[in-house]
Write a protein that binds this DNA or RNA. Structure first.
Lengths: 103, 103
DNA sequence: CCTTTATATGAACATTTATTCATATGTTCA
DNA sequence: TGAACATATGAATAAATGTTCATATAAAGG
């Protein structure tokens, strides 16, 4: 059986992508770096909620921060994340197709 | 901005993999089909908890069921799942390496 | 300096989620 | 049929998580 701490890390890893607000933010950042205000506007999520989720993303090293005056810019910390999101999208797309056939 | 229902499906998809018990079960099933009793033994999770999580996995079409007498055998419903788990493992492994260098 | 604007954060609250406990259902076999 | 075993399930409970609200911090400009 696989080690407990690996299991924990793995669960934690997937957990990040399991929240719609975080996904929204990540999809916005897929484009390029944005400051918090822009993210709020694009996602239509409250400033506070965005800020809280950005903290989560920061703590899990999914985003990098760059301060510029009053604004704080966030960007994806590595290109891996784009791949993961794309993979997930493909997966649910394919599942859609399969169900068309079978059901 | 990406559609709400896609976002929901995507979040749901990742959510399955965000629980340690479900991951344990999936890793066991990576091998081949097992009945509930065997899964309980291998994962060291209570029968009830395993059963509840198997239901979740069933509902999300991650596992297929095959009844044989008293026993109920579960197996992964498609090979995709192995790929996803492997991808996750690779990711956290690589992150491990990066942190060795940087921190 | 004081006000405005941008972002972060803590506490309260609501919701979701996972586990346990007790028990139901279903199958086999004597 | 009834005892024994395998699995499922509902209700209760506990824990984790996300949002809001109020407010703190911090930078910029007048």
């Amino acid at each position: 059986m696989i080690k407990e701490d690996i299991l924990f890390d793995l669960a934690t890893f997937y957990k990040v992508f399991s929240d719609e607000t975080r996904l929204k933010i990540l999809f916005v950042l897929l484009d390029h770096a944005y400051c918090v205000g822009e993210i709020v506007e694009k996602t239509q999520v409250s400033q506070s909620a965005v800020s809280h989720q950005l903290r989560t993303l920061r703590q899990l090293n999914l985003v990098k921060v760059k301060k510029e005056g009053k604004e704080v810019y966030y960007q994806l910390s590595d290109h891996h994340i784009a791949i993961i999101l794309e993979y997930g999208l493909n997966h649910i797309n394919e599942r859609g197709k399969e169900n068309e056939k079978e059901d």
